[in-house]
Amino acid sequence: MRWTAKESALFFESKEYIDTALVPLTPIAFDEQGRETGNANEFIQLITMNIEKQFKGRILLLPAFTYFHSESDDWKNQLLASWLNELKSNFKHVFIISTDQSWKPILEKSGNEFIWLPAVPLEHLEDEYKTTIIEGQVKQLLNLFVMKWQNAVSQ
């Protein structure tokens, strides 16, 4: 599901079936890294929308957790920790996805499902190529979800 008028309504009607949240972490910068963050944002959007399409009935794709690159780590960590708390009390599984590598140590240490993906530069890619690349990456990611779900069943 996506967080829209129609689908959020469906979410509340079928909450017992939607046990997995997917949160993109999206940095923004207006300095030299600005363009890179624009590209990363598009990339993560395409990836997550594709995952959502495959697993619409079980995953809620959240609006991105967005922050400025320049913000202090402490502040970001605290805010994200409180997001995750809230999410974990509503979902059995929480997946976090980002192109920003700096989250890796802290999120993995705290036992979160963190998917780090290096952003593919999309600016000069034809749409058709884009789709092929994104779909290729998504195919591999889908397994992560299915495996997690299977483990939960067999436990």
Binding site: L10, Y17, Q54, F55, K56, G57, R58, L142, V146, W149
Partner: peptide, 26 residues
């Protein structure tokens, strides 16, 4: 598109159920 809540189903998506469409979600 699965008629339950809209996930994408696959032909032969689960070895235990050959010759069926399978929805990984539920």
């Amino acid at each position: 598109i699965c008629k339950h809540l809209g996930c994408t189903v696959n032909w032969n998506g689960n070895e235990e159920f050959p010759n069926q469409f399978y929805c990984p979600c539920h």
